[in-house]
Amino acid sequence: MILLILIVLTGCHKRSGLQIDDPVPVVSLQDFHGRSLTLPQDLQGKTMLIRFWSLECGFCDKEVLLGLEQLYQKYKGRGFVPVAVNVSKIDPNDERLQRFEHLTYPMLVDERGLVAKKFGVIGLPTSFVIDSEGVLKGKITGEAGLDEFEKLFTAVLK
């Protein structure tokens, strides 16, 4: 009986998704224009904030994506780059995308959610801070203000 209880309890403590100090998986995605980017290699040496979101997500504050551009401009000289990963199919002619055309950081598409799954994303939005070595250093599940994102990634910047 005790053995059965231990097996059940051990099963309840399985790690789900990436944990702090885990190396992130190597993934390749395309941006809204069909250009490919491989993470973390193509941004090696940079501190990344990877935000998983969806254009269809009612809980995803789209204004955060615009605010990340301001933080990118403020910190890119110190090695910071945000990466937005839309977890759904994108119609390039969707008028809602026009508000993001001026963003200069990578806006990637994960149509089938396979990359989100590799990262252990169980809900949107979810954001990860990855250090310059490709190691997870922070995670925010759900929405957060730009000041919270800034505190999280600036603690990792060298």
Rank of each mutant, 00 (worst) to 15 (best):
H33R: 14
V81I: 15
L136E: 13
F59Y: 11
V121R: 15
V156Q: 06
P125D: 12
A155F: 10
V129W: 05
I90P: 02
I20S: 10
V156F: 01
L146F: 02
R96F: 12
H13K: 14
D21M: 10
N86I: 03
P106H: 09
V8S: 05
G123S: 15
M1E: 06
T126A: 12
L146V: 09
E143I: 12
I20G: 05
N93A: 15
L65C: 09
V109C: 04
E69R: 07
G138L: 04
G34R: 14
D91P: 01
E101G: 07
F59V: 11
G58R: 10
Q19S: 14
R99T: 05
S28K: 13
R112N: 13
F128L: 08
T154Q: 05
I20Y: 02
S36G: 02
V85C: 03
F119D: 05
F100T: 01
T10M: 13
V156Y: 05
F52E: 06
Y75D: 06
D42K: 13
F59A: 08
L6Q: 09
D131H: 02
V64D: 03
Q44P: 00
L124G: 03
R96D: 15
Q98F: 07
T126G: 03
L66F: 04
L18D: 09
R15A: 10
D147H: 08
L103R: 00
L18H: 03
G34I: 11
L37K: 14
A155L: 12
L37R: 14
G45P: 09
G77S: 12
L3G: 08
K117W: 12
Q44M: 08
T126W: 08
V26N: 10
C60P: 02
I90V: 11
L68F: 04
P40I: 09
A155R: 15
D61T: 08
V109T: 05
S132P: 01
G134Y: 10
L114N: 12
Y75A: 12
G34N: 10
K151L: 09
Q30V: 07
D94F: 04
Y75L: 07
L68V: 01
D94K: 01
L157G: 02
D94T: 01
V83L: 11
F149D: 05
S54K: 00
P82D: 14
E150Y: 07
R15T: 13
R78S: 14
L124I: 13
G67M: 07
I50R: 13
L103P: 00
L55C: 03
L68C: 03
E95V: 09
C57F: 13
R15V: 14
R78N: 09
D61K: 11
G79Q: 11
I140S: 03
C60R: 08
G145P: 02
I122Q: 15
V87F: 04
Q98G: 08
